[in-house]
Amino acid sequence: MPFSRFDGLAYRAHHPAWAFDPESGEGARIHGGRFNRIGTACFYAALSLETAWLEAQQGFAFKAQPLTICSYRAALSDILDLTDHHVRELVQVTLAQLGCAWERLAGDRKPVPTWDMADRLIAAGCAGVIVPSFASRATSDDRNLVLWSWGRNPPHRLEVIDDEQRLPRDQSSWREHTKRT
């Protein structure tokens, strides 16, 4: 595999209820996503603030919903840059596969190409991928970071930037909210 390193910043726009656990992949594990089937934890982030906004507001283009936006320091090994067509050729992945209508396919109980690709890459030791954004109004400059293996320690180090300790430490602030819904 043509693995590379990613050292830099990533951005994520969370539902505020997940602000207490910003490094979690639990929402994706519970609900599934483009690059993970239900049951597989996955960390989705963007490589720019603008892309994080686009990704988080899918389906709400004209009604922005409340978000908690976080920045992350990343020092990651075993990453595939699937925005590079040479890398895609080497790992036999197409843009059409990456951009598949995964929700419709999953809902129809049909194979989801990105899930099969993720299973194959994870088995080959891939920690994550850099992919184009398929959000509405995304441009070729909008890219995402998708991780299947991450934590606070090398070689897949990811850490939320919260130097001033602004993020909540537990979900207690959401108890009242969860009672009403």
Rank of each mutant, 00 (worst) to 15 (best):
G27R: 09
G27S: 12
R29D: 00
I30W: 05
G32P: 03
G33A: 14
G33I: 05
R34P: 02
R34C: 06
R37P: 02
I38T: 15
G39E: 07
G39C: 07
T40Y: 11
T40A: 09
A41K: 05
A41S: 15
C42R: 03
Y44T: 14
A46M: 01
A46T: 02
L47F: 04
E50W: 00
E50I: 00
T51Y: 07
T51M: 05
A52V: 07
A52C: 07
W53R: 05
E55K: 10
Q57M: 13
Q58E: 13
Q58T: 06
G59Q: 09
F60I: 00
A61Y: 12
F62E: 11
K63A: 12
A64R: 11
Q65R: 15
P66H: 03
L67V: 14
T68I: 08
C70S: 06
Y72A: 05
R73S: 13
R73F: 04
A75K: 12
L76K: 03
L76I: 08
D78I: 01
D78Y: 13
I79F: 06
L82F: 07
D84F: 03
H85S: 14
H86F: 06
V87N: 08
R88P: 06
R88K: 11
L90W: 00
V93Y: 12
V93T: 14
T94I: 10
L95M: 07
L95S: 04
A96D: 15
A96S: 14
Q97S: 10
Q97F: 04
Q97R: 08
L98G: 08
L98N: 11
G99L: 02
A101Y: 02
A101C: 07
A101T: 10
A101I: 06
E103K: 04
L105N: 12
L105G: 14
A106V: 03
A106F: 08
G107Y: 14
D108W: 08
P111A: 11
T114K: 01
T114S: 09
W115A: 07
W115S: 00
W115K: 12
D116H: 13
D116G: 10
D116K: 14
D119I: 03
D119Y: 01
R120E: 15
L121C: 02
I122V: 14
G125P: 03
G125C: 02
C126Y: 06
C126G: 04
G128P: 02
V129H: 07
I130W: 02
V131W: 00
S133Q: 09
F134S: 04
